[in-house]
Design a protein around this nucleic acid. Structure first.
Lengths: 227, 227
DNA sequence: CGATTGCTTGATACCTCTCAACCCAGGTGG
DNA sequence: CCACCTGGGTTGAGAGGTATCAAGCAATCG
């Protein structure tokens, strides 16, 4: 069964797939369980805002974005999730975000019902859930500060610095996402992101190996742009 | 012992006070405990970002704001907390926000250590904590969407609609906070907030009973400005 | 009263958006 | 092989929205 159709034309609430491989899933400590492994192609939807939140996910490889839309199509990307990140955890019945594959990626799904069953019996697990939620909260709050009170230059610099930490080679950023994704994460337009990156290049703060591969030649300067 | 000194000249990490009254504190379900009742005057600091987070709080009366600052003084208000709201819950050792009294207010404090002790034994309580964190998260995410993708008009409209729900008399907003607080919550300047409110008044969407007392004469129109 | 504080209003600057053209790399097909 | 197309990204010109700076107004408080 192939799931290689494109978002948003076809967006399964929860993509189901014959799971050839089974991978252990863990929250922070303790809990180890299994769920089907799913593959998504670039820009494919994983779930949509308002869908029944019957599962949660952990990224195995690739990058996933979670985002919200306004009626007129404006989009804000809440977060990019990389290998090891959990997403799709909800308190209510439905997903409050849409979730899409930034690039081809693999995720493990986990049945929410069984997680909740375990959590109601296991204090350690429920505290892990609390810890997870609080870390997500802290991230969202830093994001809000970025969106509410920083200039375009500061936003792009913060993005580069943040993504440099995800890179194995420090001071090097491999951008898995398109400029539009960056723009929607920073609350900017694609043109402003592009112009700001070009400005950084002219100022010798960064150097492009390719469009998506950037070296931070002056990481200290970029970092200094953040508070 | 009076705590009526002003922020930020004097900002106790945790204000302590001889507790005349003792009020039960509850998370969502279950947990009932007690803590000292504290009073704060307008603009007084309750705790500061980076202080040791040894206590958490629940608003009894008045309004509290939690906010972050950038080095150059730019401020973003994360949330306003009204009677019944819990604030100051942290996963890490320190507060990630500053907290200040918007107006004269009363809060109950609760020792974090004893909450954690209870939570480590009580699954229901730890799930309450998870639920609390997830609701805070949802709020922060909606706030981020507001900050990142909405215009000044939409922001102010959303603020009015949101605060109308806190009012007993629906379609009436009693603003406890100054214009500067509204601006720092919406990621705008005080002038833009003022101009937008004046525009709403000219458009007959709102009517001022006084500077801080607003009637929503066209609540449907204001609500329609939110996606 | 005069001073202060919070808020509003006006004029102007500037930052970011909008709209458009262009560039470039990759893929396709004649 | 090359013309063509397509999609992602860049760049430019101009518009527009919000910020900045400054003045004025109203309520409150000595």
């Amino acid at each position: 069964m192939s799931l290689a159709f494109a978002f948003p034309t076809d967006r399964p609430a929860i993509a189901v797939q014959t799971a050839a491989a089974r991978t252990p899933w863990t929250m922070e400590t303790g809990l180890s369980t299994v769920g089907p492994v799913l593959h998504f192609v670039q820009d494919q939807g994983i779930y949509g805002e308002g869908d029944a939140a019957d599962a949660l996910f952990k990224v195995v490889s690739g990058v996933v974005r979670t985002c919200k839309f306004l009626r007129d199509g404006r989009r804000l990307i809440d977060a990019f999730h990389v290998a090891g990140d959990v997403f799709g955890v909800e308190a209510g019945a439905d997903y409050s975000f849409s979730s899409e594959a930034v690039c081809d990626c693999t995720v493990v799904s986990y049945r929410r019902r069984s997680l909740e069953a375990s959590a109601s019996k296991d204090t350690g697990l429920s505290l892990d859930l609390f810890s997870y939620a609080m870390r997500s909260l802290a991230r969202a709050q830093v994001h809000a500060l970025l969106l509410g009170r920083r200039s375009a230059v500061e936003k792009v610099a913060a993005f580069l610095v943040e993504w440099a930490t995800h890179s194995t080679d420090t001071d090097t950023v491999m951008l898995e996402m398109a400029r539009q994704d960056i723009a929607d994460y920073l609350g900017l337009t694609i043109e402003t992101v592009s112009r700001t990156l070009s400005q950084f290049e002219r100022d010798r703060l960064i150097a492009f190996s390719s469009l998506r591969h950037i070296r931070l030649t002056e990481p200290a300067v970029l970092r200094a742009l953040n508070s």
